[in-house]
């Protein structure tokens, strides 16, 4: 492909990925790597690098609004970032030691998990009001805005959450996604933060996590500007547009479409791994 259509099509495809990612809550990262590898014939190592940059762009763009509205628990975010950035650096180092097939296989698992959780959102848990010693020490308990005004909540199981966050960072760095599902799992299920606080705090952490591994990839030459720049720009515009229309539309049918795309991408990537044609 010549430069002009290559760049413009990359912007358009990433715009769609960012838009759907914002509407389904999955983030664009999960489809950007398959788009680059399967549709644009880009090497997996460049695809992961570009996807991480796009993940940073969408996270920073969305985080601004959530932080201002008071959903994000900044202390929980910063504390758990110790675990995610460490995992991200380890993941970026490990990525250089393992084969492309290994990375793609891990990616396939992440794709199927993403599709599953889009179609089966977890049931809300009742709030846990028991005080927690570590949460008290780090002053993590907080409150968040709801229709009925500010509602207080408590935070639990910080060490267990931290361990999962390490693996979220590792996964993010290995395959170039935000790992929002893993982060939300840790905060919502394990640490018992309200769902809205979990998703917004996850988004807040995603940019920092991806920046840690993107730094390593940059120095390794895995960030190719002619791919990363159009992808980041498209994903950013798409996700901002998605966030804007989100309150006004029904997303149920979209979730099925998105899950279908994700499963299809997973199967196709798996086929390439098995036939050794990545």
């Amino acid at each position: 492909m010549t430069a002009l259509p290559f760049i413009l099509l990359l912007v358009a495809a990433s715009l769609g990925a960012g838009f759907l990612g914002a509407l389904t809550g999955l983030g664009g990262g999960v489809v950007i790597v398959p788009i680059l590898v399967l549709l644009f014939g880009v090497d997996l190592r460049f695809a992961v690098g570009a996807s991480l940059v796009a993940v940073i762009a969408t996270s920073s763009g969305a985080a601004a609004a959530y932080v201002r509205e008071g959903y994000t628990n900044i202390r929980v975010g910063i504390l758990l970032e110790v675990a995610t950035v460490t995992g991200a650096i380890v993941g970026a180092i490990v990525a250089a030691m393992v084969s492309k097939n290994a990375i793609a296989s891990i990616f396939v698992v992440a794709l199927f998990w993403s599709a599953y959780s889009t179609l089966r959102p977890p049931k809300p848990l009742p709030p846990d009001t028991e005080p927690d010693a570590i949460s008290r020490k780090f002053r993590l308990d907080s409150s968040y805005p709801t229709k009925e005004g500010m509602v207080a909540y408590r935070v639990h199981h910080v060490p267990a959450g931290g361990v999962i966050m390490f693996f979220a960072g590792l996964l993010s760095a290995l395959v170039g996604i935000g790992s929002g599902i893993v982060k939300v799992f840790a905060m919502d299920r394990m640490m018992r933060l309200p769902f809205k606080v979990s998703t917004t705090t996850s988004n807040f952490m995603i940019g920092v996590t991806a920046a840690a591994s993107a730094g390593v990839y940059l120095q390794r030459g895995q960030i190719q500007p002619a791919i990363a720049a159009p992808v980041a720009l498209g994903a950013l515009i798409g996700s901002l547009a998605g966030a804007r229309v989100l309150p006004h539309i029904q997303t149920k049918a979209l979730r099925y479409v998105f899950a279908g795309v994700v499963v299809f991408a997973g199967i196709e990537l798996l086929r390439r791994v098995l036939s050794n044609s990545l």
């Binding site: 290559f6 390794r220 895995q222 960030i223 190719q224 500007p225 002619a226």
Partner: peptide
């Protein structure tokens, strides 16, 4: 980038470290 040269072929199917590292 496009103004400099929009007609040359771009192919990133093989990994070669980017110059801006």
């Amino acid at each position: 980038f496009l103004w400099e040269d929009s007609a040359s072929k771009l192919n990133f199917s093989a990994f070669e470290p980017s110059a801006h590292g």
